[in-house]
Design a protein around this nucleic acid. Sequence first.
DNA 1: CTTGAATGAGACATGAATGTCTCATCTGCG
DNA 2: CGCAGATGAGACATTCATGTCTCATTCAAG
Lengths: 198, 198
Amino acid sequence: MSHLRYCCFMAVDRDHVLRSAAALLTRKSTATMDEVAKAAGISRATLHRQFAGRDALVRALEALGIAECEAALEAARPGEGPATDAVRRLVAEVEPHAGLLAFLYSENQLFEGEEQNEGWTRIDEAVAGLFRRGQASGEFRIDLTPAWLTEALYGLLASAAWAVAEGRVAPKDFTHMIVELLLGGVRRQGDPARRNAS
Amino acid sequence: MSHLRYCCFMAVDRDHVLRSAAALLTRKSTATMDEVAKAAGISRATLHRQFAGRDALVRALEALGIAECEAALEAARPGEGPATDAVRRLVAEVEPHAGLLAFLYSENQLFEGEEQNEGWTRIDEAVAGLFRRGQASGEFRIDLTPAWLTEALYGLLASAAWAVAEGRVAPKDFTHMIVELLLGGVRRQGDPARRNAS
DNA sequence: CTTGAATGAGACATGAATGTCTCATCTGCG
DNA sequence: CGCAGATGAGACATTCATGTCTCATTCAAG
């Protein structure tokens, strides 16, 4: 049946369009449907046939980002071993998708009143749970809330994706920069003599 | 002369409009000129008389943000005492303007090709210089570049301003959260037994 | 070859935000 | 009072992205 082939074809094509759009919107978040279509190598008409409108496209990108986040989360095995290592694995897994996530992160700011996709809520809770586990095991300090640590991780991911895109930092340092700063902070450790009064 | 009074009057009014716009755009970055005018308690016509257009308004807000950043930087005395304390002072000084800065931060992403205001460059260099000083004095680790630390600070400021605006974290913790995470990281310190192989 | 489906190109209408304009009103000052 | 400047309200044109539509073309299957 040509009908079956049709479905398969559409699926891969849709995925290709989605990834092209992600790559473009990562660089230019205000790109028009024309530009998105051109970047994907299709016409605007075809783009509209696959995604009802810009809104639908962004929603699909959001779903893609959520799926990639959840896949990264699963691959990182956040419940296994030291929380410190789990955080390292998580950032390493997320790194390839940081651009898209940065776009979605800033896009979320614009959603004003609307309630956010529940997928993010699940991811938030999983990440916060990882931090909470680290606190419970004594690996992590307990004076910073898991909610804040989760937000901070997102912010660092977005900042790093950004800084890399603008050429301010080297792409190869991505994971190391984020993980080291998040885990260890700026202060040099193992040198307690320098801690002045708070 | 009424002309003199005119100048003064315009100046304070302009400042009021600017601050209203900053407060509104901090919450809703896509607010229209109508909304900005309404928020400032003036008509759209008057708003247009003071700022040639939305672009001019954003530029003026950028100039305001730069001025506030430079004032904060000066007040923090980044060259005095331990770099650690200087970072604390800097974040504390910047805190009141974090909302505006977060707006400008995300707005900058949209500027695509245009070169950014040189004011930001100066501020970037001053902040990076502070981190560099901390590295030189041995307070800060040297495996993270000053450029990245600067970006990370901006990202954490924006994330925190955001998280506070959405009610995910308490406003009173703002400075503490950022400073502690940036300086000390998530990992609990003074407990070297837990450092596994990298 | 013929047919059907998908596509590309482009016209067209729509809606939103912007920028410009005019005019009535208000206010302070001479 | 009379005037000048500033303001508010609103009409108006413009621009731009979007969404919808039609039509010719291409391509693969029968």
